[in-house]
């Protein structure tokens, strides 16, 4: 069980380092075009890979998950806010699970 706290502290240390180092160290703009571009694309690649195909089984069965996925894509493309998309996707999956 103590190992769980070890995991939590390692995660927290890495995550805080990522957040704090630029604020403490970087006082100028990053100029390397490749690095800038990589950092720009990276979050999209990471979140997309985390979302798909995992989302297809996220709400239990395939059909409710698919319903939530479709609703999230439609609302996300329309630029709805994060909580709105999250709650609507959950609601869609829930409703479809009753059908």
């Amino acid at each position: 069980m103590n190992r769980v706290y070890l995991y939590i502290f390692v995660m927290a240390a890495v995550t805080y380092a990522i957040r704090v180092l630029p604020i403490l160290l970087i006082r100028r703009k990053i100029t390397s075009p490749f690095l800038r571009s990589f950092l720009y694309y990276m979050p999209y690649a990471t979140l997309a890979a985390m979302t798909f195909p995992a989302i297809l089984s996220a709400a239990g069965g395939l059909i409710p998950s698919l319903a939530g996925f479709v609703v999230a894509v439609i609302l996300g493309l329309r630029g709805k806010s994060l909580p709105v998309v999250a709650i609507a996707a959950t609601a869609a999956a829930l409703i479809v699970s009753f059908l």
Partner: peptide
């Protein structure tokens, strides 16, 4: 079960 999809909805709202 349905709440399991909430986080992915949030991810999609960030990237789309």
């Amino acid at each position: 079960s349905a709440l399991g999809i909430a986080i992915y909805g949030m991810f999609l709202a960030i990237i789309l």
